[in-house]
Design a protein around this nucleic acid. Structure first.
Lengths: 195, 195
DNA sequence: GCATTATTTTAATCTATATTAGAATTTTTT
DNA sequence: AAAAAATTCTAATATAGATTAAAATAATGC
C-alpha cells in the first residue's frame, strides 16, 4: 500500500493515457490519431505524453499489452473447476465483453499490429497466439466433455473473436447499448456451439 | 462490348488500383498506407495515382463504394423465391465470403470510415445502414417462416457482420485457408440461428 | 510515319506531426 | 515556507507524405 501510493500518481495518469490512446486508435486508427489528439482527451499537450512513454509506437504497444492482460484476466476468471467447456466459454465471453464496453474503457485495438516495430510486433503476436490457443483449448475441452458440438476449433475461434474484436467499430459508448451487448453477445455467440 | 473496349484500359487499371488500395488499407490502415505503398503494388509512382483519382480520400471512398456493391451483389444473388430465411442467409454469407477471399481480392476495408470527408462518410454510412437493414430483414423473414429462432436481429446482425468484417485482419491470401473459410464460416455463423 | 491522346515520371512545394531541449509550473518533502 | 522532485508547457527541428505542374514516354488513330 505504502509503495503503491508512490506509483499511484504516475501510474494512474499513464493508465488514463493508455485508455485515451486506445479510444483514439479505435476511432481513427493508429496513424490517423495524432499525439495531439490523444493528449487533448486528457487535457494535455502532445509533448507531455513523452513523460510517460518513449514514443508513439510504445503507446500502441502498451495498449496491446494492456488488452492482452484484460483478455487473460477474463479467461482466468472464467476457468473454474467443475465447469464444462461451454460454461467456461460463456463466462469468458461475458467477462471479456463486460470489460471492453465497461468503465475500464476500450482496450482492444487489435487492428494496428502492422504499426508495431518488429520486436514489439512479435511479442504481441505471441501473446495473441497464446490467447487464441487457450481459447481453442477450451473449445476442445467442451467438445470432449460433450457440452460443445464437434467443430473446427480454429475457424470457430476466429469467428467468435472476430465478432468481439469488431465491437469497438460500432459501439461508441452508449451505456444502454453496452448492457445490451454484454447480455446478448455471449448468448448469440455460444448458441451455435450447442451439440 | 464496343464501348466497353474504350473504357477497358482505364477502368481495368483503376480497378487494379482499388484492389491494391484495399489490400494496403486492410493491412496497414488508411493513414498507415502511403500512396507510394499503394502505387508500389502496381509498379507505379505515387503521382500516377492522381491520374485515376482526385486524392487519397477518394481512394478509400471508392473502395467503400466497391465493397458496398459486392455486398449488394451477394445479397441479390442470395435472395430467391421459394427459399426460407435461413437458406437465404446461408447463401448470402457464402457468396459474400467467397468474393472477399477470392480472386476479386479484398474489398472490405470497413474500418476506415472516420477518414472519409463528411459527404462521403454519410453516403457510405447510408449504404452500410441500408445493407445492415436488409440483412436484418432477412433474419426477420426467417424468424417468421420458422427457419430461424427468434432473436435480437440487431445484435445478431452485428455479431455475424463483425465476424465477416474481421476476416481481412487475419486472412492474408493463403488459398487453402480461403477454401476453409468459404466452406466453414457460413456453417459456423448460421448454426446459432437454428430454432 | 505523324499527330493526337493517354499514361507515367520527375521534381518541387506545402503541411501535418513526431520528436527534442529547456523553461515554467505544480506537487511533494522536510 | 524553502528545496527538491515531478509534471507539463513553449518553442524549435526534422521528416514523411500528400499534392501539383510540367516534362517525358507510350499508345492509338489516320
Amino acid at each position: 500500500m505504502a509503495q503503491k501510493a508512490d506509483e499511484t500518481r504516475f501510474e494512474l495518469q499513464k493508465d488514463r493515457m493508455l485508455r485515451a490512446a486506445a479510444k483514439c486508435f479505435n476511432e481513427k486508427g493508429y496513424s490517423g490519431s495524432s499525439l495531439k489528439d490523444v493528449a487533448a482527451v486528457l487535457g494535455l499537450t502532445d509533448a507531455a505524453l513523452y513523460y510517460y512513454v518513449r514514443n508513439k509506437e510504445e503507446l500502441v504497444y502498451l495498449c496491446y499489452v494492456r488488452a492482452a492482460a484484460v483478455g487473460q484476466e477474463a479467461m482466468a476468471r472464467a476457468v473454474r473447476d467443475g465447469l464444462n467447456g461451454m460454461d467456461i466459454v460463456r463466462r469468458y465471453l461475458r467477462y471479456h465483453i463486460e470489460i471492453m464496453v465497461g468503465d475500464r474503457g476500450p482496450v482492444a485495438i487489435m487492428s494496428e499490429i502492422p504499426s508495431l516495430k518488429p520486436v514489439h510486433r512479435n511479442e504481441v503476436l505471441e501473446l495473441s497466439r497464446r490467447h487464441s490457443a487457450r481459447f481453442e483449448g477450451i473449445l476442445e475441452t467442451g467438445i470432449e466433455d460433450g457440452s460443445i458440438a464437434p467443430c473446427d476449433v480454429r475457424m470457430t475461434g476466429n469467428a467468435i473473436m472476430g465478432s468481439i474484436n469488431w465491437i469497438p467499430k460500432w459501439y461508441h459508448g452508449d451505456p444502454a447499448m453496452a448492457k445490451l451487448i454484454a447480455t446478448q453477445f455471449p448468448v448469440i455467440l455460444t448458441r451455435g456451439l450447442r451439440p
